Structure formats: structure tokens, C-alpha cells
Simulated scan of single mutants.
Amino acid sequence: MKRNETINIGQVARRTIAMEASAINDLQQFIDADFEKVVEQVAQCQGRLVVTGIGKSAIIAQKIVATLNSTGTAAIFMHAADAIHGDLGMIREEDIVMCISKSGTSAEIKVLVPLVKNFGNILIAMVGNMSSFLALEADYVLNTTVSQEACPNNLAPTTSTTAQLAMGDALAVCLIEWHGFTAADFAKFHPGGALGKKLYLKVGDLSKQHQAPQVALNSSLREVIVEISSKMLGVTAVLDEKGLLKGIITDGDLRRMLEKDVPAAAVTAQDIMSLHPKLIQQDQLAINALEMMRQHDITQLLVMDGERYKGIIHLHDLIREGII
């Protein structure tokens, strides 16, 4: 295929983005009573939302299904072509069917729609042609009409599929808010990878992987250095005789003490400790520990269970788990 020597790549890219952004913005006028009814019906559905389509619309349907499932709304994808060759069997009595199509007139859609209606299921159309067969036959219509495709020939689905995707996201977000779906709920469906860890991994899960460095108020300088070195976290907590936290000693505290003209043999932990260490409760999310470290420009926090010292969480723990 020959190159068009007159093409301005940057200009074409910016024009495409502008056209698609305009199409998404225009969708606001189509958020009507039907859209609200669709949200209500899907939210109260005892079955699943079966999303179907053909061609590029089928790909958008799969993305919408993935978003819905990951945010607490049961959904399943059914390819419109496969549906009329046996996959209709996946539709249950309590399910709702949503058919996505730009034209609403493709051959597969015309065959599929009467079959779904014969089953008695609610039929939702997400369609870009409000006078089409699909729009007229559906119980509810989500209007995704666009003025033109970004494709210079006005043929390749570009603006239209972007509009479908945005309408699907609008539906999903409304359902999230309808159900009061929280970050904790989200974590249940995303346990793997860095995203899942940010949502469920607790500070205590990481701190218990280390021994908890600690010294007494009257511990000698040598004992402090040995404790910090042996636990390899660059820090130790200082506890009183009741086991209550009194302070913290870091590598930096040791260096600053050694720079002073002080007899090392007479130095104890309480002489060099910092009195107000940064603390975090063990039931806090690890991502919260990262935010605290960034806020205070430090690399470790003392982990607490109420008033009791439990250990250390270090920046390296968060890096190792992919939180950063």
C-alpha cells in the first residue's frame, strides 16, 4: 500500500481525538428516561446481563461485560452470530439481554432479536440508529448516535465504538453507585497483581515477615548497633520495661550521635532516640504506608497493634510486593 505523501500525522491524530471527544460529549443529551430505566432494571435483575453484538460492537460488548463483572454486576458475553447457532441456550429466564449495534439492521441482529423477544427477556438496545429494526423492537434504547466516524471514509467503526464504550462505562458507574460498591468490594474481584495488592494487602502482612527490632531504654550503644545490624532494617524501636513504645533509633540517629564529642561507653538508647516516630496500625492497607512514607520522606514506619509495638514496615517491602 502506497504512502500518502501529503499526510500530516499529528494533525490527523489530533483531529481523530477531537472528533471522538466531541462524540462522547454529545452522549450527555442521550441520558434520558430509558437510560435510567435500564440502570434500574439491571440493578434489580435476579439473573445476568447478557451482552451481545456483531463485528466491532461485539468487541465493545466484551469490554463492557468485563467492566460489569469486575464491579459487582453479573454479566456474560454472547456473540450474535453464535447465538443463532446454539448459544441462545446460555440465556436464562431471569436474564436481561443488551444488544449493541451501530446500524441496528445487520442480518444477525434481525434474526436474533425476535428470538430473544420470544423468550420473554427484557431487551435493551445500544444503537446508533434510532429508526432501526433493533431500536424499534427493543424495550429500552441507549442512544449512541454519532454524526460521523473519525475514519476519513466514514466507514471504519471509530467514533461509534468510542461512543458505545463510553455509554457502557456510564452504565457501569451508575450501577457501582447504585449498589454502593466499595474499594473493599473491588478488591474481592481483583486479588491478583499490583492492583489487587493495593486493595487488600495490609501493613501487618508485610511487617510480620521481619523480626521486630527493639531495645530497652537503658540499652548500650553497642546493643543498639547490634540490634539494628542484625535485623537489617536500619532502625529499632525503643521500649520501656512494660513493653510500651518510647521512641525510635535510626541509622541516621547513630551517625549524628557519633559526630558529637560524647563518650560512647556512657551512651544509652534513651540518649539518642527520637521521641515521636511515625506510626501505622497493622490493619491499615500497605498502600497507606506508602503514602505516609512519601509524605514524610522516610523509608520505614513502626507498626502498631493499638498501643503495642509489632514491628517495622520498610519501603523495600512495598517495592518487593509491587505496590510502587
Results as ranks from 00 to 15, higher is better:
residue 2 K to V: 11
residue 2 K to C: 03
residue 4 N to E: 06
residue 8 N to K: 10
residue 11 Q to P: 01
residue 17 I to D: 02
residue 24 I to F: 00
residue 24 I to K: 01
residue 25 N to H: 13
residue 26 D to Q: 15
residue 31 I to P: 08
residue 33 A to W: 04
residue 37 K to F: 10
residue 47 G to H: 07
residue 49 L to R: 01
residue 49 L to D: 02
residue 57 S to M: 05
residue 57 S to C: 11
residue 60 I to L: 08
residue 67 T to I: 07
residue 68 L to Y: 12
residue 71 T to Y: 06
residue 78 M to R: 05
residue 82 D to R: 05
residue 83 A to Y: 11
residue 94 E to D: 12
residue 95 D to G: 08
residue 97 V to H: 00
residue 98 M to Y: 04
residue 98 M to T: 02
residue 108 E to P: 07
residue 109 I to C: 02
residue 111 V to S: 08
residue 113 V to T: 07
residue 113 V to P: 00
residue 121 N to R: 04
residue 125 A to M: 11
residue 129 N to R: 01
residue 132 S to W: 15
residue 134 L to W: 13
residue 138 A to K: 02
residue 141 V to L: 05
residue 142 L to I: 14
residue 154 N to G: 00
residue 155 L to V: 10
residue 156 A to G: 02
residue 163 A to T: 11
residue 164 Q to D: 05
residue 166 A to Y: 06
residue 167 M to K: 00
residue 168 G to Y: 01
residue 177 E to S: 09
residue 179 H to N: 09
residue 180 G to M: 10
residue 180 G to C: 06
residue 182 T to K: 13
residue 182 T to G: 02
residue 183 A to K: 13
residue 188 K to V: 14
residue 194 A to H: 12
residue 195 L to F: 00
residue 203 V to M: 10
residue 204 G to L: 03
residue 204 G to F: 02
residue 206 L to H: 01
residue 206 L to D: 08
residue 207 S to Q: 14
residue 210 H to K: 11
residue 217 L to T: 10
residue 219 S to W: 04
residue 221 L to E: 04
residue 223 E to A: 13
residue 224 V to N: 08
residue 232 M to Q: 14
residue 234 G to E: 14
residue 239 L to S: 03
residue 239 L to T: 03
residue 242 K to T: 11
residue 245 L to N: 03
residue 247 G to I: 02
residue 247 G to C: 08
residue 248 I to Y: 10
residue 250 T to N: 06
residue 262 V to L: 12
residue 263 P to R: 02
residue 264 A to S: 12
residue 268 T to Y: 09
residue 279 L to R: 04
residue 281 Q to N: 14
residue 282 Q to R: 15
residue 282 Q to G: 04
residue 283 D to A: 06
residue 287 I to R: 00
residue 292 M to P: 05
residue 298 I to V: 15
residue 306 G to Q: 07
residue 310 K to T: 15
residue 314 H to E: 14
residue 315 L to A: 11
residue 322 G to M: 05
